[in-house]
């Protein structure tokens, strides 16, 4: 299976390419007043309005830097009431796709809601990398903003 790798500071995450619709550079977003910090704004993605979540703001409390390696990963997530929705995840250092065998993921050994998200991990020469699933990011944020109440 192939994974897109990105960084949140020193810690690295991978996201399965089967969850990815497209990876694009950080384009200019339309901001709205009173949005939570982690919602970087909205943009026109191929004719539909897509909100972008800045994972650096969400997990590190600082916005993503403005370098070429900062990219928006467009994914589809399933929210409340099984509503499907496209969102952009803004991440840093999204410059690599790696191949990982499914059975090489292992338990991370730390748990807790206060931690930035950590899932099953794999090891490489530089340390550990955590797998992340787009829908799991939404456990951390207020669903009411992105998914209308039924």
């Amino acid at each position: 299976m192939q994974y897109v790798k990105f960084n949140l500071d020193e810690f690295r995450y991978v996201l399965s390419i089967t969850d990815v619709i497209e990876i694009i550079p950080y384009v200019k977003l339309t901001s709205l007043p009173n949005l939570p910090d982690y919602l970087a704004g909205l943009f026109n993605y191929r004719g539909s309005s897509v909100p972008v979540i800045d994972l650096c703001s969400l997990f590190l409390k600082r916005p993503c830097n403005k370098k070429l390696s900062t990219r928006i990963i467009v994914v589809e997530v399933i929210g409340k009431n099984s509503v499907k929705k496209m969102v952009g995840l803004m991440v840093e250092k999204a410059t690599e796709i790696i191949k990982v065998e499914e059975d090489s993921f292992m338990d991370a050994g730390v748990y807790g809601d206060d931690l930035p998200y950590i899932g099953p991990v794999i090891a490489d020469s530089a340390g550990l990398i955590s797998r992340i699933h787009p829908s799991e990011i939404f456990l951390q944020i207020d669903n009411e903003i992105l998914f209308p109440a039924a």
Partner: peptide, 25 residues
């Protein structure tokens, strides 16, 4: 080589992308 991506985007790069991704595929 990856280090190239750790620089600021060239002038016009983001505007061009913005135009490109706003068009329906």
């Amino acid at each position: 080589g990856r280090g190239v991506f750790e620089s600021r985007p060239p002038v016009g790069y983001l505007t061009q992308w913005q135009k490109e991704i706003s068009i329906k595929k």
